[in-house]
């Protein structure tokens, strides 16, 4: 039990500290790396409470895919300078009020969830519905997701699909004058199209069109 406590506190301290460092570090790329560290320690916490499937999916989806894209964007865009200006107080961000509103909302949501769990524990009695059936939690998750919550599950999938298509449509632009290499065309070229054998007369040369 004491080992459990040691691991729990290690992971949670790393999670909290790295979450703070995401906003506190001056270098934006460092921020993303701290975010990744945060994701990893959170997934370790998930594994510790027995939600191994959730922990692994967290690693695969957030760390393996989403954070890579974050890193891409942060490395390519020059956001570092702007963040530096905020730190030195030369420029103020217009996004701060919006961020404040969203963070207060999230804060109250967390208070409501924790409060409800504290005062009405029987509502959140998940242990009885899942853990007691002695099957692995991947199975039990699947049994809940694909039976009781199938419609919600499908709808969330559709929303993600729509978001993806929307993002592609918004950023898609047809550029003209770009030379494209067609795979099929390149392979299916015949000798007759590409090579022409000419009799070259001396001192006359050959006139090559186009």
């Amino acid at each position: 039990m004491i080992a459990h406590a040691i691991f729990f506190y290690t992971f949670s301290i790393i999670a909290v500290v790295s979450a703070i460092m995401v906003t506190a570090s001056k270098n934006t790329v460092h921020s993303v790396f701290f975010l990744i560290l945060d994701f990893i320690s959170i997934s370790c916490l998930f594994i510790m409470i027995g939600a191994e499937f959730l922990g692994m999916i967290m690693l695969i989806v957030y760390v393996g895919a989403v954070a890579v894209l974050f890193l891409f964007v942060v490395m390519m865009l020059n956001v570092a300078q702007q963040k530096n200006q905020w730190f030195t107080g030369q420029a103020t961000s217009k996004h701060i009020p919006v961020g404040l509103i969203i963070s207060t909302l999230i804060f109250f949501e967390i208070i409501i969830v924790i409060g409800g769990w504290k005062y009405k524990p029987e509502i959140f009695d998940i242990n009885n519905s899942l853990a007691s059936t002695s099957v692995s939690n991947t199975h039990s998750l699947g049994q809940v997701l694909y039976t009781d919550y199938i419609h919600v599950f499908q709808i969330s999938g559709m929303i993600l699909l729509v978001a993806m298509v929307g993002a592609i449509v918004l950023t898609f632009r047809q550029r003209s004058g770009v030379k494209k290499q067609s795979y099929i065309k390149q392979i299916s070229r015949e000798r007759a199209e590409g090579v022409e054998v000419l009799e070259v007369q001396s001192n006359k040369g050959v006139k090559i069109d186009d």
Binding site: I36, E52, F53, M56, L59, I60, V63, G64, A65, S136
Partner: peptide, 16 residues
């Protein structure tokens, strides 16, 4: 229990 997911997760972290 989630051995294959673990393998997949670790190999996807390799990019870092």
């Amino acid at each position: 229990n989630v051995g294959i997911l673990y393998l997949f997760a670790v190999s996807s972290l390799g990019v870092y």
